[in-house]
Amino acid sequence: MTKTRRISGFLGLPFVFWAAAFIIIPLLMVVWYGLTDENGALTFANIAAIAQPAHAKALLLALLLSLLATAVCFLLAYPLCMFLVEAQKTSNSFLTMLLIVPMWMNFLLRTYAWQSILEKTGIINTFLTAIGLQPLRLINTNGAIVLGMVYNFLPFMVLPIYNVLEDIDKNVINAARDLGANGRQTFLKVIFPLSLPGVISGITMVFIPALTTFVVSSLLGGGKILLIGNVIEQEFMVAYDWNLGSGLSLVLLLFIIINVVVSVISERGEEELRRRKSDAEA
Protein backbone atom coordinates (compact mmCIF):
# COMPACT_ATOMS: atom_id res chain seq x y z
CA MET A 1 0.00 0.00 0.00
CA THR A 2 2.78 2.42 0.94
CA LYS A 3 4.52 1.39 -2.25
CA THR A 4 1.61 2.37 -4.47
CA ARG A 5 1.31 5.61 -2.58
CA ARG A 6 4.98 6.36 -3.18
CA ILE A 7 4.60 5.65 -6.90
CA SER A 8 1.46 7.77 -7.24
CA GLY A 9 3.37 10.56 -5.50
CA PHE A 10 5.92 10.46 -8.30
CA LEU A 11 3.18 10.69 -10.90
CA GLY A 12 2.55 14.26 -9.83
CA LEU A 13 6.18 15.29 -10.18
CA PRO A 14 6.15 16.44 -13.85
CA PHE A 15 3.36 18.84 -13.05
CA VAL A 16 5.16 20.09 -9.94
CA PHE A 17 8.12 21.07 -12.13
CA TRP A 18 5.82 22.56 -14.73
CA ALA A 19 3.91 24.58 -12.16
CA ALA A 20 7.11 25.77 -10.48
CA ALA A 21 8.72 26.86 -13.74
CA PHE A 22 5.75 28.42 -15.49
CA ILE A 23 3.29 29.42 -12.78
CA ILE A 24 4.89 29.91 -9.36
CA ILE A 25 8.20 31.52 -10.37
CA PRO A 26 6.58 33.96 -12.85
CA LEU A 27 3.95 34.82 -10.26
CA LEU A 28 6.60 35.50 -7.63
CA MET A 29 8.38 37.72 -10.19
CA VAL A 30 5.16 39.67 -10.73
CA VAL A 31 4.80 40.09 -6.97
CA TRP A 32 8.44 41.21 -6.71
CA TYR A 33 8.18 43.72 -9.56
CA GLY A 34 4.82 44.94 -8.35
CA LEU A 35 6.11 45.75 -4.88
CA THR A 36 9.40 47.46 -5.89
CA ASP A 37 10.45 50.52 -7.88
CA GLU A 38 13.05 50.57 -10.69
CA ASN A 39 15.86 50.71 -8.12
CA GLY A 40 14.59 47.64 -6.30
CA ALA A 41 13.32 49.56 -3.27
CA LEU A 42 10.07 48.41 -1.64
CA THR A 43 7.03 50.54 -2.58
CA PHE A 44 3.23 50.41 -2.82
CA ALA A 45 3.12 53.12 -5.51
CA ASN A 46 2.60 50.58 -8.32
CA ILE A 47 -0.50 49.22 -6.63
CA ALA A 48 -1.81 52.62 -5.59
CA ALA A 49 -1.52 53.60 -9.27
CA ILE A 50 -4.84 51.88 -9.87
CA ALA A 51 -6.45 54.99 -8.36
CA GLN A 52 -5.19 57.15 -11.24
CA PRO A 53 -8.21 58.16 -13.33
CA ALA A 54 -7.00 56.44 -16.52
CA HIS A 55 -6.33 53.17 -14.73
CA ALA A 56 -9.47 53.25 -12.59
CA LYS A 57 -11.55 53.97 -15.68
CA ALA A 58 -9.99 51.02 -17.53
CA LEU A 59 -10.65 48.71 -14.59
CA LEU A 60 -14.26 49.84 -14.19
CA LEU A 61 -14.91 49.50 -17.92
CA ALA A 62 -13.36 46.01 -17.90
CA LEU A 63 -15.55 45.02 -14.94
CA LEU A 64 -18.65 46.43 -16.62
CA LEU A 65 -18.06 44.84 -20.03
CA SER A 66 -17.04 41.46 -18.63
CA LEU A 67 -20.10 41.36 -16.34
CA LEU A 68 -22.27 42.21 -19.32
CA ALA A 69 -20.58 39.55 -21.45
CA THR A 70 -21.01 36.99 -18.66
CA ALA A 71 -24.72 37.80 -18.39
CA VAL A 72 -25.21 37.51 -22.15
CA CYS A 73 -23.27 34.22 -22.20
CA PHE A 74 -25.52 32.84 -19.48
CA LEU A 75 -28.69 33.91 -21.26
CA LEU A 76 -27.49 32.31 -24.49
CA ALA A 77 -25.93 29.19 -22.99
CA TYR A 78 -28.68 28.02 -20.66
CA PRO A 79 -31.45 27.60 -23.25
CA LEU A 80 -28.90 26.17 -25.68
CA CYS A 81 -27.84 23.56 -23.12
CA MET A 82 -31.43 22.60 -22.39
CA PHE A 83 -31.96 22.16 -26.10
CA LEU A 84 -28.76 20.12 -26.49
CA VAL A 85 -29.62 17.82 -23.58
CA GLU A 86 -33.06 17.27 -25.08
CA ALA A 87 -31.52 16.58 -28.49
CA GLN A 88 -29.06 14.14 -26.91
CA LYS A 89 -32.01 12.28 -25.41
CA THR A 90 -33.44 11.66 -28.85
CA SER A 91 -29.94 10.45 -29.84
CA ASN A 92 -29.29 13.42 -32.06
CA SER A 93 -25.60 13.68 -31.17
CA PHE A 94 -24.70 14.97 -34.62
CA LEU A 95 -26.61 18.16 -33.85
CA THR A 96 -24.66 18.54 -30.62
CA MET A 97 -21.41 18.19 -32.53
CA LEU A 98 -22.58 20.70 -35.10
CA LEU A 99 -23.20 23.28 -32.38
CA ILE A 100 -20.20 22.55 -30.17
CA VAL A 101 -17.34 22.01 -32.60
CA PRO A 102 -17.22 25.56 -34.08
CA MET A 103 -16.80 26.87 -30.55
CA TRP A 104 -13.36 25.27 -30.35
CA MET A 105 -11.97 26.98 -33.44
CA ASN A 106 -8.91 29.13 -32.91
CA PHE A 107 -9.62 32.09 -30.68
CA LEU A 108 -7.60 34.67 -32.68
CA LEU A 109 -9.01 33.48 -35.96
CA ARG A 110 -12.55 34.01 -34.77
CA THR A 111 -11.78 37.46 -33.39
CA TYR A 112 -10.20 38.45 -36.71
CA ALA A 113 -13.27 37.13 -38.46
CA TRP A 114 -15.48 39.44 -36.40
CA GLN A 115 -13.13 42.29 -37.23
CA SER A 116 -13.71 41.79 -40.93
CA ILE A 117 -17.45 41.43 -40.42
CA LEU A 118 -17.81 44.63 -38.35
CA GLU A 119 -15.27 46.87 -40.13
CA LYS A 120 -16.21 50.13 -41.85
CA THR A 121 -15.75 48.29 -45.13
CA GLY A 122 -16.77 44.98 -43.64
CA ILE A 123 -19.46 42.59 -44.71
CA ILE A 124 -22.33 44.24 -42.82
CA ASN A 125 -21.54 47.78 -43.91
CA THR A 126 -20.85 46.73 -47.51
CA PHE A 127 -24.28 45.15 -47.54
CA LEU A 128 -25.92 48.23 -45.97
CA THR A 129 -24.35 50.63 -48.49
CA ALA A 130 -25.25 48.28 -51.33
CA ILE A 131 -28.94 48.54 -50.47
CA GLY A 132 -28.62 52.31 -50.07
CA LEU A 133 -28.43 52.65 -46.29
CA GLN A 134 -25.95 54.59 -44.18
CA PRO A 135 -23.04 52.47 -42.89
CA LEU A 136 -23.12 51.84 -39.13
CA ARG A 137 -20.31 52.37 -36.67
CA LEU A 138 -19.88 48.82 -35.44
CA ILE A 139 -16.20 48.23 -34.83
CA ASN A 140 -14.30 50.01 -32.05
CA THR A 141 -17.34 50.20 -29.81
CA ASN A 142 -18.02 48.72 -26.36
CA GLY A 143 -20.69 46.63 -28.04
CA ALA A 144 -18.16 45.07 -30.39
CA ILE A 145 -15.94 44.14 -27.45
CA VAL A 146 -18.81 42.52 -25.56
CA LEU A 147 -19.75 40.67 -28.73
CA GLY A 148 -16.17 39.41 -29.09
CA MET A 149 -16.07 38.30 -25.45
CA VAL A 150 -19.38 36.48 -25.73
CA TYR A 151 -18.41 34.81 -28.96
CA ASN A 152 -15.06 33.65 -27.63
CA PHE A 153 -15.98 32.64 -24.10
CA LEU A 154 -19.43 31.15 -24.69
CA PRO A 155 -18.08 27.55 -24.72
CA PHE A 156 -16.82 28.01 -21.16
CA MET A 157 -20.38 28.76 -20.09
CA VAL A 158 -21.94 26.05 -22.24
CA LEU A 159 -19.81 23.12 -21.09
CA PRO A 160 -20.31 23.22 -17.30
CA ILE A 161 -24.03 23.96 -17.65
CA TYR A 162 -24.43 21.22 -20.25
CA ASN A 163 -22.67 18.75 -17.94
CA VAL A 164 -24.89 19.42 -14.91
CA LEU A 165 -28.07 19.44 -16.96
CA GLU A 166 -27.10 16.17 -18.61
CA ASP A 167 -26.39 14.66 -15.19
CA ILE A 168 -29.84 15.40 -13.81
CA ASP A 169 -31.69 12.10 -13.54
CA LYS A 170 -34.67 12.04 -15.91
CA ASN A 171 -36.68 10.38 -13.17
CA VAL A 172 -36.11 13.36 -10.87
CA ILE A 173 -37.76 15.55 -13.49
CA ASN A 174 -40.47 12.91 -13.95
CA ALA A 175 -40.95 12.86 -10.16
CA ALA A 176 -41.60 16.60 -10.11
CA ARG A 177 -44.16 16.24 -12.89
CA ASP A 178 -45.65 13.23 -11.14
CA LEU A 179 -46.08 15.27 -7.95
CA GLY A 180 -48.13 17.86 -9.80
CA ALA A 181 -45.59 20.41 -11.02
CA ASN A 182 -46.18 21.86 -14.49
CA GLY A 183 -43.28 22.54 -16.85
CA ARG A 184 -42.49 25.98 -15.43
CA GLN A 185 -42.65 24.83 -11.79
CA THR A 186 -40.48 21.81 -12.59
CA PHE A 187 -37.86 24.12 -14.08
CA LEU A 188 -37.91 26.70 -11.29
CA LYS A 189 -38.08 24.30 -8.34
CA VAL A 190 -36.04 21.35 -9.57
CA ILE A 191 -34.04 21.74 -12.77
CA PHE A 192 -32.59 25.21 -12.17
CA PRO A 193 -31.61 24.67 -8.50
CA LEU A 194 -29.94 21.39 -9.44
CA SER A 195 -27.99 23.09 -12.23
CA LEU A 196 -26.65 25.93 -10.04
CA PRO A 197 -23.16 24.42 -9.55
CA GLY A 198 -22.70 24.39 -13.34
CA VAL A 199 -24.00 27.94 -13.65
CA ILE A 200 -21.57 29.15 -10.98
CA SER A 201 -18.54 27.53 -12.58
CA GLY A 202 -19.70 28.79 -15.98
CA ILE A 203 -19.85 32.34 -14.62
CA THR A 204 -16.34 32.05 -13.17
CA MET A 205 -14.93 30.56 -16.34
CA VAL A 206 -16.34 33.36 -18.51
CA PHE A 207 -15.90 36.29 -16.16
CA ILE A 208 -12.18 35.79 -15.48
CA PRO A 209 -10.93 35.57 -19.08
CA ALA A 210 -13.30 38.39 -20.08
CA LEU A 211 -12.05 40.63 -17.27
CA THR A 212 -8.41 40.08 -18.15
CA THR A 213 -8.60 40.04 -21.94
CA PHE A 214 -6.59 42.46 -24.04
CA VAL A 215 -6.72 40.67 -27.39
CA VAL A 216 -10.48 41.06 -27.88
CA SER A 217 -10.41 44.70 -26.83
CA SER A 218 -7.44 45.62 -29.03
CA LEU A 219 -8.79 43.83 -32.12
CA LEU A 220 -12.41 44.93 -31.79
CA GLY A 221 -11.80 48.13 -29.82
CA GLY A 222 -9.19 49.39 -32.26
CA GLY A 223 -6.79 50.49 -29.52
CA LYS A 224 -9.14 53.33 -28.66
CA ILE A 225 -11.01 51.59 -25.90
CA LEU A 226 -8.67 50.55 -23.12
CA LEU A 227 -9.57 47.82 -20.67
CA ILE A 228 -7.37 47.08 -17.69
CA GLY A 229 -5.82 44.21 -19.69
CA ASN A 230 -4.73 46.64 -22.41
CA VAL A 231 -3.25 49.05 -19.88
CA ILE A 232 -1.18 46.28 -18.33
CA GLU A 233 -0.09 45.00 -21.74
CA GLN A 234 1.05 48.47 -22.73
CA GLU A 235 3.02 48.98 -19.54
CA PHE A 236 4.93 45.77 -20.30
CA MET A 237 5.25 45.93 -24.08
CA VAL A 238 5.25 49.67 -24.89
CA ALA A 239 6.31 51.63 -21.81
CA TYR A 240 8.59 48.87 -20.52
CA ASP A 241 7.50 49.76 -16.99
CA TRP A 242 7.42 46.23 -15.59
CA ASN A 243 6.97 47.53 -12.05
CA LEU A 244 3.76 49.43 -12.84
CA GLY A 245 2.48 46.60 -15.06
CA SER A 246 3.06 44.09 -12.27
CA GLY A 247 1.43 46.36 -9.68
CA LEU A 248 -1.73 46.67 -11.76
CA SER A 249 -1.66 42.91 -12.42
CA LEU A 250 -1.72 42.28 -8.68
CA VAL A 251 -4.84 44.44 -8.37
CA LEU A 252 -6.48 42.45 -11.16
CA LEU A 253 -5.38 39.22 -9.47
CA LEU A 254 -7.22 40.35 -6.36
CA PHE A 255 -10.47 40.60 -8.34
CA ILE A 256 -9.91 37.13 -9.78
CA ILE A 257 -9.30 35.70 -6.31
CA ILE A 258 -12.45 37.38 -5.01
CA ASN A 259 -14.44 35.86 -7.87
CA VAL A 260 -13.08 32.36 -7.28
CA VAL A 261 -13.63 32.56 -3.53
CA VAL A 262 -17.20 33.77 -3.97
CA SER A 263 -18.00 30.97 -6.40
CA VAL A 264 -16.45 28.29 -4.21
CA ILE A 265 -18.32 29.60 -1.17
CA SER A 266 -21.66 29.76 -2.95
CA GLU A 267 -21.17 26.27 -4.36
CA ARG A 268 -20.29 24.79 -1.00
CA GLY A 269 -22.51 27.09 1.00
CA GLU A 270 -25.76 25.33 0.34
CA GLU A 271 -24.26 21.90 0.88
CA GLU A 272 -22.60 23.03 4.10
CA LEU A 273 -25.78 24.64 5.36
CA ARG A 274 -27.73 21.47 4.78
CA ARG A 275 -25.07 19.36 6.51
CA ARG A 276 -24.99 21.65 9.51
CA LYS A 277 -28.76 21.56 9.74
CA SER A 278 -28.72 17.76 9.73
CA ASP A 279 -25.87 17.62 12.23
CA ALA A 280 -27.77 19.85 14.61
CA GLU A 281 -30.73 17.53 14.21
CA ALA A 282 -28.79 14.32 14.82
Binding site: N174, A176, D178, L179, P193
Partner: peptide, 19 residues
Protein backbone atom coordinates in the same frame (compact mmCIF):
# COMPACT_ATOMS: atom_id res chain seq x y z
CA UNK B 1 -50.02 15.11 -18.58
CA UNK B 2 -48.54 13.40 -15.47
CA UNK B 3 -49.12 16.43 -13.21
CA UNK B 4 -52.88 16.22 -13.81
CA UNK B 5 -53.24 12.53 -12.92
CA UNK B 6 -54.53 11.22 -9.61
CA UNK B 7 -51.69 8.81 -9.20
CA UNK B 8 -48.17 9.05 -7.85
CA UNK B 9 -45.04 7.08 -8.57
CA UNK B 10 -42.27 5.65 -6.42
CA UNK B 11 -39.29 5.43 -8.73
CA UNK B 12 -36.80 2.61 -9.00
CA UNK B 13 -33.81 4.78 -8.05
CA UNK B 14 -35.96 6.86 -5.63
CA UNK B 15 -35.42 10.08 -7.68
CA UNK B 16 -35.38 12.27 -4.57
CA UNK B 17 -34.68 15.98 -4.87
CA UNK B 18 -31.08 16.16 -3.65
CA UNK B 19 -31.22 19.93 -3.13
Amino acid sequence: PPNKRQLNTVFQNYALFTH
